[in-house]
Design a protein around this nucleic acid. Structure first.
Lengths: 205, 205
DNA sequence: ATTTCATATAGCACTATGATATATCATGAT
DNA sequence: ATCATGATATATCATAGTGCTATATGAAAT
């Protein structure tokens, strides 16, 4: 495999290493199981499945019109595919380029009132708290359902990652909200001062 | 502005709201100042500058001189541009879809030895520790250099975000490394057991 | 003198998303 | 009965975004 090869291909291989699946299945699995740190779109999944099949890393299982659905195209990983996956897993992951619209807004927000930014931060806090709840619930659920699965410790690690991250961000939100309310107070005071000054000036002129 | 409008446009507007700049300047600024939570590529910057100019949100300062080929093309934000930026700043930021190659590898890593994953996690820890150092250094630097700038508190907030996040991830790395080394020990034990069994079997057969 | 480097713009191939189109089948409502 | 709805399923397109490469120039270093 070429070096510029995208991670998406291996994400699909990874899913197929668990069990054969269709493009639709893959999308569902990604959303439901690794959705908190990965995403795939149909627009990539279907072309990639074809590429992977051309490269011999997966094969199309024909004749599986089992439940009578419309032409379900199920793919399964091959031995070559498993090898490619293992190889990729051992390579150092590329560092992701983060893009946070929230931080971008915050960085430039001296153009607007602190309250507008505070609203964004409050929403972020709510979101992260919701995430924490989901992580904990999911962890309990999979521990109960797959207590002996060899992948379990690794799944829990990824959930733990999210929990740590979200907890830190909630703490940041609290700090930031405090700072923003201080800034608002200060601005209000300066406004009052400016008004008083203006009045005095008007009085003298 | 349309609702599907990308954040990149406003990132450029934000940078130009600080001072007039060329495409090159913008790239430098983004890398140097908001690089820890945002990125822009030349491949987007130049087309977007033209679009923004067409929409009247920015204006080209230097003339479109024909003779000099690679002449510096400096853009400045217009009043309309400032209004558009303010409007955007007040809208709720869209939640970003995170993609972590590290977690993807970790999730599927029961295919390979725990040591391979441990290596990835150690590298991650090093990276985050480096980030923390940079955040703290940058914070000291800008507090010294722009003690009275109205944007300073907001810049510090974004750095603080990074610091919180990185500290949490370092803690996660430590936890995860501990878990991985336990898993490795367990696997080693099972292997030994398997070997002993095999020997016994061979002995009896 | 010429090599090297920082500045600067531009285009292209590839990667990725989100929206939408299309069709089938199961289920329950009318 | 048949009709609406929603889940299943595949596919495509416009748009967004990245990374690499080509090109050019002036200034500094060798």
């Amino acid at each position: 495999m070429k070096s510029g090869e995208s991670a998406s291909k291996f994400a699909l291989l990874g899913v197929l290493s668990l069990k054969p699946a269709s493009g639709y299945d893959i999308k569902q699995f990604v959303q439901g199981s690794i959705g908190h740190f990965w995403s795939e779109s149909y627009g990539r999944i279907y072309p990639l499945l074809k590429e992977l099949a051309d490269e011999g890393l997966i094969v199309q299982q024909r004749g599986t019109k089992a439940s009578g659905r419309s032409e379900r195209q199920v793919y399964a990983i091959t031995v070559a595919g498993e090898m490619a996956l293992r190889q990729w897993l051992e390579h150092s992951p590329r560092n992701e380029s983060p893009r946070s619209e929230l931080l971008l807004k915050l960085f430039f927000c001296d153009h607007v009132a602190p309250e507008a930014s505070a609203q964004h931060v409050r929403e972020k806090k709510q979101l992260e708290e919701k995430h924490i709840a989901i992580y904990e619930q999911t962890a309990r659920h999979i521990q109960q359902r797959y207590p002996a699965h060899p992948g379990l410790p690794y799944w829990l690690m990824t959930l733990n990652f999210g929990r740590h991250r979200s907890q830190a961000l909630v703490a940041w939100c609290d700090e930031t909200l405090a700072t923003l309310s201080q800034l608002e107070k200060k601005q209000a005071k300066e406004k009052t001062k400016a008004k008083t000054k203006a009045k005095t000036k008007r009085g003298t002129v």
